[in-house]
């Protein structure tokens, strides 16, 4: 009898609320301005800029339709400073009220192997790497950039923090949200105060640190203690980004195979083309997302190349080098 009631309840539930896509929008900011690599931001009176910001989110829980809770145990997000939209899955819900998650990767996934996943899965092999082959484990948060160590307002001292180890997992308290609902998609907007990952760190001395150090632990814990993630109402927000925000930013972690980070403001799919200096097309891809990190699966000879990305209306391009 109980089973029948449960069955009825479940079918009822499925009938009233149709499947909707849930998209998490991580709106990255630096001191309340739109996030950009290579652009100075202030932290406790010191100028810095990011050349890389990537982190994992896992352990998602959403509260929906009047306080019901759903766990998303298999949803992982690999977030990057220049990427806003992350698809969390399709769910039978009509509205989302709150979200919570952990920064980092849960212990089970963290003891697994990148090669168990395809390259496009957040936990798959990445370039630049999001894991360290030596001790098994993902980098929960990676921040690369430069800081102004000598007070000349010119950040020129590098820092590179890659946090590693189960103990870095940082739970974020439930955040009440005000999603934007379209016909088939629920957009959950959060504000990410990206500079706060680095609060309290002496960036001029941290150097290159790929480990479970106290500096890396502080960086991960900042995500809750410094409220890196906050609720954000995209419509009523007074914060706006007036400038045209389409850009390409190359990551040269591998000089022989750089990664193309790109971002378009509008949501249209894009085409990506790589030509050599003589205009010969070396690689062409269409239907890519409007923002992303593209790792060309092709070995290029040493030389100068041009990557062009367009969405039919707008086009951006950038020169880049390959050093074999």
């Amino acid at each position: 009898m109980k089973k029948i009631i449960l069955f009825l309840l479940v079918t009822l539930f499925i009938n009233v609320s149709a499947q909707k896509k849930i998209v998490l929008r991580l709106n990255h900011f630096l001191n309340d301005s739109t996030f950009h690599y290579n652009e100075n931001f202030d932290l406790d009176g010191v100028q810095n800029y990011y050349t890389r910001l990537q982190y994992y989110l896992s352990g998602f829980e959403i509260e929906y339709d009047g306080g019901q809770i759903s766990l998303l145990p298999n949803t992982y997000v690999l977030a990057s400073g220049h990427i806003t939209n992350y698809y969390l899955g399709d769910f039978s819900v009509s509205n989302v009220e709150a979200i919570r998650f952990d920064v980092g990767v849960d212990q089970i996934a963290n003891s697994g192997n990148t090669t168990n996943y395809t390259g496009s899965h957040p936990l798959g092999p990445k370039s630049p790497p999001m894991d360290w082959g030596w001790p098994s484990g993902y980098f929960f948060v990676t921040t690369n950039g430069y800081t102004d160590a000598n007070n000349d307002n010119n950040p020129d001292t590098p820092f590179e923090l890659h946090a590693l180890g189960d103990q870095m997992l940082s739970p974020i308290d439930q955040i009440n949200v005000n999603p934007v609902n379209s016909n088939d998609t629920i957009y959950i907007d959060l504000k990410v105060n990206a500079e706060r990952f680095l609060s309290g760190l002496n960036l001029s001395t941290v150097g290159v640190d790929h480990s479970s150090s106290t500096n890396n632990l502080l960086m991960c814990n900042n995500s809750y203690s410094m409220n890196v993630f906050e609720s954000y109402n995209i419509i009523s927000s007074s914060i706006e980004s007036p400038k045209n925000n389409n850009y390409i930013f190359m990551d040269y972690t591998l000089a022989f195979a750089p990664t193309i980070n790109y971002h378009f403001n509008s949501n249209q799919k894009v085409n990506l083309k790589i030509t050599d200096i003589n205009g010969k097309v070396k690689l062409y891809e269409n239907n890519l997302p409007s923002e992303g990190s593209y790792f060309p699966l092709k070995e290029f000879a040493t030389g100068i190349y041009i990557v062009t990305i367009d969405n039919g209306l707008e086009m951006i391009y950038k020169k880049f080098n390959v050093v074999q």
């Binding site: 192997n113 090669t115 092999p125 370039s127 082959g133 030596w134 098994s136 195979a257 790792f295 092709k298």
Partner: peptide, 26 residues
């Protein structure tokens, strides 16, 4: 002894700059 599996260990030399200096996807 910090690497837990032989499968995973095989990725180390492939990615190490001073060994194969390559990437498993390439």
């Amino acid at each position: 002894g910090v690497n837990p599996s032989l499968e995973e260990q095989a990725l180390v030399p492939i990615h190490e700059k001073n060994e194969f200096d390559f990437h498993v996807l390439l």
